[in-house]
């Protein structure tokens, strides 16, 4: 920051780096509002924020993993697997426990425990067995995707109908018109921001991602920090799944496809460095909102062929990152 104030040009580029994602988000909101009168209606805003929550909650965890120099490709498959497991456990216990909140609690505990275990397995293989994060999570991505296909017998796992009305409010209800997924996403994001900025763990994660040798000499337990980022991400995948299952009450092999790439894209749009060493949780939140808004706006307008949705997303992702590229990092 002190460097930035030395010359005018450097200052502008640093400002853009921070403001880039915010500018992109504001631009999208203006475009959306101009294109469709219902864009800023409470219903639409609530829809967009609720559906952002799954990727958002996961992306906050992903921010820590990427900041400490790691990567996790398995989160989408992991979410599908945990969703399938949660449904199977609740269906299995329904005859003995009956439809009600105790059973929902069991489902939630299942999701958190499974998420913790899955995160631990990734972390263990990466830190203790010293395998590249990319390879480990590519492997577990395939494993979880196959497992959910196998559990579902290739079809769809559906929550028993009696249970569905009990669990539905977790996605659709809330406090004062703000739905639970939005509240949980907000809480996770605020905690994530505080941990990243104020807690020792956030600093250690950045130090490990920046230079793990130096971090080790500074008596940071590098393996423990790395392990914790994966376990934390696993827990957050569990929480996201708890929000996801009530919505449609089902899980299938197509659940959570490409969530990992959306989460990684949101993290990078938000200003976290893919190579590690610097992370910004609030930026990730903005990245997630940008990705959801693009989809929403394309659905609300008629001008663009739906075949081109992916291209428009790609262009906006690249633009958002160009706005904040770091000139000093070159050479």
């Amino acid at each position: 920051m002190a460097m930035a104030q030395m010359t005018q040009t450097a200052k502008i580029s640093v400002d853009l780096k921070v403001l880039g994602p915010i500018l992109a988000l504001v631009a999208l909101i203006i475009v959306g509002a101009l294109l469709n009168g219902n864009f800023l209606s409470a219903g639409n805003i609530s829809n967009v924020l609720s559906r952002s929550a799954f990727i958002g909650i996961i992306a906050v965890g992903m921010t820590f993993v990427i900041t400490s120099g790691g990567l996790d490709l398995s989160v989408g498959s992991m979410a599908a697997f945990i969703a399938g497991l949660m449904i199977l456990v609740m269906n299995g216990l329904l005859p003995s426990m009956g439809a009600g909140w105790p059973l929902v609690m069991v489902g939630m505990v299942t999701a958190i425990v499974a998420g913790t275990a899955a995160g631990f397995i990734n972390g263990f293989l990466i830190t203790n067995m010293r395998i590249e994060a990319f390879i480990v999570t590519l492997g577990t991505m395939g494993i979880y995707r196959s497992l959910v296909t196998w559990l579902a017998d290739g079809g769809t796992l559906s929550l028993d109908f009696g249970m569905r009305s009990v669990i539905r409010p977790i996605y659709f209800d809330g406090i004062l018109g703000v739905s639970w997924p939005i509240l949980v996403f907000a809480l996770v994001a605020i905690c994530g921001e505080v941990v990243m900025r104020r807690a020792a763990f956030g600093r250690h994660a950045a130090a490990v991602g920046s230079n793990d040798q130096v971090a080790r000499y500074s008596s940071v337990n590098v393996n423990r920090v790395r392990m914790m980022t994966y376990v934390m991400l696993g827990v957050l995948v569990g929480i996201a799944t708890i929000m996801y299952v009530p919505r449609l009450g089902s899980a299938s092999p197509s659940t959570g496809v490409l969530w990992e790439l959306e989460a990684i894209a949101a993290v990078i749009i938000g200003g976290t460095m893919l190579k590690g060493g610097f992370g910004r949780v609030w930026g990730t939140v903005i990245g997630v909102l940008i990705l959801s808004l693009i989809d929403n706006i394309l659905n609300l307008t008629d001008g663009v062929s739906p075949y081109l949705n992916g291209a428009i997303q790609g262009v906006i992702i690249i633009l958002a990152v160009i706005l904040q590229r770091d000139k000093k990092a070159e050479g």
Binding site: N44, R51, N296, N299, L300
Partner: peptide, 23 residues
Amino acid sequence: LAMEHGNWNRDDSFTVMEDFLSK
């Protein structure tokens, strides 16, 4: 009124329908 790709997928169709209902 409109056609959109739901990709034979429940989640995609859910979000598209939400947006159609707003529109």
